[in-house]
Nucleic acid binder design. Sequence first.
DNA 1: ATTGCGACAGCAAACGATTGCAGTATAGGT
DNA 2: ACCTATACTGCAATCGTTTGCTGTCGCAAT
Lengths: 356, 356
Amino acid sequence: MAFTAVTLRDVAKHAGVHPGTASRALNSRTRALVNEATAKKVLEAARELGYRPNPIARGLKTNRSETIGVLIPDLTNPLFPPIVRGIEDRLREEGYTALLANSDNDPTKERLLFETMSDRQVEGFILATADREDPLVEDALAARVPIVMVNRTIETAIAFAVVGRDRGGSQLAVSHLVGLGHTRIGHIGGPERFSTGKARYEGFVAAMEGAGLEADRRLIGFGEAFTEDEGARVCRELLAADNSMTAIVAGNDLLALGCYDVFAEEGLRCPENISVIGYNDMPFIDKLRPPLSTIRIPHYEIGWNAADLLLLRISDPDASPRTVFLEPELVVRASTGPPPQPLSGTARSAAAGSAT
Amino acid sequence: MAFTAVTLRDVAKHAGVHPGTASRALNSRTRALVNEATAKKVLEAARELGYRPNPIARGLKTNRSETIGVLIPDLTNPLFPPIVRGIEDRLREEGYTALLANSDNDPTKERLLFETMSDRQVEGFILATADREDPLVEDALAARVPIVMVNRTIETAIAFAVVGRDRGGSQLAVSHLVGLGHTRIGHIGGPERFSTGKARYEGFVAAMEGAGLEADRRLIGFGEAFTEDEGARVCRELLAADNSMTAIVAGNDLLALGCYDVFAEEGLRCPENISVIGYNDMPFIDKLRPPLSTIRIPHYEIGWNAADLLLLRISDPDASPRTVFLEPELVVRASTGPPPQPLSGTARSAAAGSAT
DNA sequence: ATTGCGACAGCAAACGATTGCAGTATAGGT
DNA sequence: ACCTATACTGCAATCGTTTGCTGTCGCAAT
């Protein structure tokens, strides 16, 4: 196992040429500058000695590191692994590797990580951490550091980003519910400071209006985070505010999961008494009781495309910023069904009655 | 935002000293070599200019990169994110960062990644990819490259590793089932080429014998991978081989999930007709239908300790290899219950009968 | 025969730090 | 007053590559 200790000098010596020449021969971009025969000789020597260039040394001279920084809120959130996987796969195709770190949505930590990575000469960043207004992103943009955002994006500037078409996704969810016969539909939105939270909310409102339905403010709430707990909290509020609601579109799957908990508390059966649809289609969400209807986002592709875009941006500093939208897809499972018939006493009203 | 371009020379000049002196002043290990007053001056200058050392340049000279390589089979497997998180958290405490890559359990790819990372001067590796006999690990050991294994370990050498106490975990599972009254207990093991697969299997056999029960070979099968599909396949085999089985201990949660699918096919109710217990307690497994009983491994801690150990190994090349075992914990949920009463016709035998 | 040019290849200076060695100045001992 | 030990600090090499510049050689054109 060649844990390389063979340097460029070694192969140069072995090939009987100057290290500079060897360098040029080895680098495809400069190979033309050296005689074909000598180039062959060098390549041969390199192969023979098992030469592998030292990227650190190269980086020192060239300011390139062939690594890029990936900042995500929390790897432990099932949303991110596929994205990271996509990033990594695309990156490796070009010989790049990823430096990964978790920010826990803490701006201070985020900035620190960003700087640490900058120090390490990463050539660019993929950020899954952007707020709609995000000073870090703006600073990076101003400094012309290559970045592309994934999943979320900013609104205060135009930049590279790869995101799902969130408004469209909400519309999918609403149409599905409307098609089932629901009219009193609530929304549990994610934090409005994230583009995902806001866009899905806006999509919800637009779709409701498009369907000639009222987007009742009392039936709309926002979680302070994309968590199960927040989903439960808001769900309770919505239920308390108006008992005519028969369906909920949640800003993401975790929020929807919180609804499940509340339904259980309240003795509500899903989907018989109330429907809920999530967003993301995270792994294993199909195994739940009941399997969650949701909007699928192509996470792996998001990651892959983000890396692709970043690579482009790195090789062409003048590439014009673009945000690519990936299409969401409706996944119907068992958490959504027709609304309860109001005529006969439903379990819902029975449950409400028994609570009185 | 200081995207550092200020070098050691700059701060030296600003402080009116030689770069060498500045270097010594800045480095806590060598600070004693320089006059306290000048040191202060240098520190001051550095702070003022916002100096941040260039780790690449440093690394070139010192052969240290403050980064370590993390090789996992597939980040998308929910087992790994918490481990990686633990690794990263511990690493960052010491200013290290992690280079992450997925091997997909492909030895060729694994080796390639290993070499790429070596080239990048990583100071050590954390491997979640070890087979019980693993040439890559052996080579690395022979070359005295610092490595520590997580989750799985090798058997052909003694090395640093952090794993769950797998045999003990299986015993927990078996005791639980025996306590419930089961006697005909089957086992769906993971691949025997992984230490986890083997140890859990051995723990199963030992526990059965310890309980005075027969570990019937017909009730034992092995998946070729830790996947739901393999779980289903083996589950079908076991069911076909002997219809007296009332409980299954699965080598991991995914394998157990496969059982769920087969139960559904066969019209078996869990836990009324048959119990199953998983291993790992992966995220969201508690949301399943029914919530899966399982053995919890402290994944985050495994990662954290692995990083800790690696850091130790790096700072002290003569540290003696050790494998630290973390204790598993029984998590009882709803997939395990008492065995069906053989007296009255159970759904199980009814189902079997109707199939005849 | 001289000049000019093209094609290589070598030289050496970077890149930004670290570090062994040597030099200088001060203090302290006799 | 001289010598030596001590305490710094500066010098310069070095880590492994890359790359602008210079030099050499052969060949063709005049």
